[in-house]
Every structure is written in C-alpha cells, then in structure tokens.
Nucleic acid binder design. Structure first.
Lengths: 216, 216
DNA sequence: CGGCAGATTGACCCTCATCAATCAAGGTGG
DNA sequence: CCACCTTGATTGATGAGGGTCAATCTGCCG
C-alpha cells in the first residue's frame, strides 16, 4: 500500500501525545508504522466521543480531507510511529495516476462503510452485542496483521471502549466479566483471549426478543 | 454544482420504490432533482437501520464507491426525480480536472463528517436531545434550499425517524408531543413548526446531570 | 512504601422499550 | 356517498437494561 512505502517523513508519537488536534490546519494523512491511536470527536458543549481505534498498517486522517482544519483529535494509545503523507502531494499525484486516485476513493468509501457499521451498532444493538462485535472486529484486525486472533492486548481503557460503543465503563467491565463467566473469553486487565469464537458470534443477534420471534 | 447540471440521464422514482438495492452492481451517483429518499442499511441477521434522509439538491450513493455492489438500499419517500451520474465518467473526468477531483474528495469527506456527527448523536445523546438535533438539522437543510426553516413537512414516518435515531417509534411520538406541550414546536401528523428555536437548541446539553454539574 | 489510575462489583434508580388499546386519515369498492 | 380496511400516530401501563453513585481492589510507577 502506498502509505507504507511513501517517501513521507517519519514521526514518533509517545503514549498520550497528540498526532493532531481539533482545529489544527489539515495537511496530511498518516500511515501507522507501529503502535496505535484513537480518534476523538469533540463538540462545543463539552461532549466527546471516541470514533475509532487504529492500529499498525492503517491510515489515519481521512476525515480532514476537504476541510481547512482537522475535525477531531488523534491520540497515541502507546508509543507509536507514523509516516506523514502530505495531502497536497498525494492530491497532485492522484491526478496523474488514475490507479492512485481510485485507491484514494476506495479508502474514503471504506471509511464511510466502517462508520456505517458503527452506526448500526450504536443504533440497534444492546450492550452485550456491542461488546461481542467489538471483540470480533479487533480479533479480525489483529489476525489480518499477522497477530493472534485469539489472544491480544487491549491498548485502550474500559472508558475508551465504552465511549466508542456508547456505553459506560462500568457496563463494559461487567459484560466482559459476564462473557468470562460464560466461558466465551478470558480477560485479565488489558489481556484478552477469545475462548469460544462461534459462541461469541452467536451473541450478536440474541437478546432481542422481537427479532428472534420474527426470524422463527 | 456538477451533479445538478450534469448530462446524466433523468429518472423518476415513485414513492416507496427503490432507487437502488443492496447488492445491485454499483455504477452511478444520483443527484436529487426533486423529492426525497432514505438510505437503509441491512445486515445478514435481519437488522435494518435508516442511515440518512436525503432531499433535493443532495447527492446519493457515495458509499458504493470502490465496491462492486451497493452496500444498502435507497428508497423514495415521495415521488421523486434524480439525475444519474455514471461513476466511470466522473472518475475519468476527475483525472483531467483537478478541481472536480478535489470536489469529489470534499464530498466524500463531508459524508464521513456527517456520519460522525450521527455517531456522536447515537453514542452520547439521550432521546430528547436526539429529536431536537434531528429537527434542527432538518430545519437548516430546508432553509439552505430556500424553504421555510420554521415550518416544514416530514416526509418520513415516526418509525423511520426512530430508526435513524436509534429510538422506537413510540418514543419519537411521545417526545414530539412533549416538545409541543412545552411550547417548543407544533406538530400535527407530518407537519412541524418550530416555535422556539433557541429553546430547542437548549434541549441539547440539558438532561445529563453529570455533564451539567461539571459545566458549572 | 505510598499514591494513583484503572478495573471490578454492588445497590439503586431512571430512561426508554415493550405491550396494548385507541384514534385519525386515506383509499377502495359496493 | 358511506361502510370498511389499512397504515400511521398517540397515549398509557409496566418492566428491563443500563446509567449513576459508591466502595473496594489491583497493578504500576515514582
């Protein structure tokens, strides 16, 4: 992928530091070489919400395209390293390279779809289903990057998970404990192992009486 | 805007008909000339959610870019007319016309931001706030298109509104009634008038005890 | 060793979903 | 023109899911 062999400048960001901030001038995308980040959206009235977690190999900053300024914060969840991809250059290059242009469109559209599925989660799933979907998603992404799909480390707090999923941290904690008690997963602080993936998948879709009856 | 004077083919879609369906081959964007639509996302397990309402002057179908097939349904809420904008042509044209390319990026990124704000709504607002935000948003869009910002017709049912906002239709109905009782709006079936816009804005942010105390 | 951030767990309560009855509006056919 | 039916909206009663508040525990780092 272009973002990882691009000629852009490297940059290290330590845990807790900002990669970019709300309101800063937008000028680049960032390919994550190592580490991980969260995207946070802030509103005038003091509301704030995590809109996504991003790991090595993914690209960050699409939402700033077309704006003068960054529409949110990106914060490192651990010591990380990124490649900066100046958007002007990318834009100019895309004009001469249709394949790149198409790839950019594809990535933007992919971002739209990713957010849609999160909307679906927030709008129609109950807490248990949200957590299950979250864990499955993480598992797939780790697996796609060559890490274990069954055992991984959460780089974010319960509160950050809750913020992404529209839940309170206590609820996140309780449900992880419940999953563990039911033998679906093992949790110990930030360390998670998926014990029964099929059962975890089955959590999504259970628990809404109305839909279950209709399905029958 | 290119989408409204483009040379693409016109097409009429009657109320309740599909503009496009989940799984159909993706090949075009659609500029809405008249009428309105809803976008619906469907999942394997029978879940479905409205992801947006679209009115005259807006462009529909961004999320299909980069996919072979349409990722959801678009259904007319009333008798409508669209201009079809074949994506291949747009894509080819964008290579030769940097301004168009940039405009396309801008529109895609705008879509991302629109969805983010919906995520924020779904993830962090209570029912009253969601309805208020929904009405304010509609008001602004009508106003931007030259219609009254204070009096308009809802083209969608309570159930569809609820689906967008992650609420049940009864909750939508109850809260509209409550807003009316409080003198914020007038409602009679699909007809809405905004009586006290500032008060309606103030609804957003009230009602969460924790945040209110922190603000003080 | 002490202090602190994050996590867990319990008790209580509130918002919103659920179930159900009723009502209004529009369309259809006799 | 009116009886009938269907679809959408309103309103009430009840309960569950998850938020809120609070106490405790764990691990980590200075």
């Amino acid at each position: 992928m272009f973002s990882l062999r691009g000629p852009g400048a490297r940059r290290r960001v330590r845990r807790g530091e900002y990669l970019y901030r709300l309101g800063a001038p937008f000028h680049a995308l960032y390919g994550i070489r190592a580490g991980s980040f969260k995207s946070v959206l802030l509103t005038e009235d003091g509301r704030e919400q995590v809109t996504g977690f991003h790991m090595g190999g993914e690209v960050l900053g699409f939402d700033g395209i077309g704006s003068e300024t960054c529409p949110g914060d990106a914060i490192a969840l651990e010591d990380s390293e990124v490649v900066e991809i100046p958007f002007d250059e990318l834009d100019a290059l895309a004009c001469r390279e249709p394949a790149l242009q198409r790839e950019l469109f594809r990535m933007l559209a992919g971002e739209i779809q990713r957010e849609r599925s999160l909307m679906l989660l927030l709008g129609s799933m109950r807490a248990e289903e949200r957590l299950a979907a979250f864990l499955i998603n993480l598992s797939q992404r780790f697996s796609a990057r060559g890490f274990s799909a069954h055992r991984f480390l959460l780089r974010m707090t319960r509160e950050e998970i809750g913020s992404l999923l529209g839940l309170k941290l206590e609820t996140v904690s309780r449900i992880l404990s419940r999953f563990q008690a039911e033998g679906l997963i093992g949790v110990r602080n930030r360390e998670v192992q998926i014990v029964a993936m099929p059962a975890l998948r089955a959590v999504i879709g259970r628990g809404d009486a109305r839909r279950e009856r209709e399905a029958a």
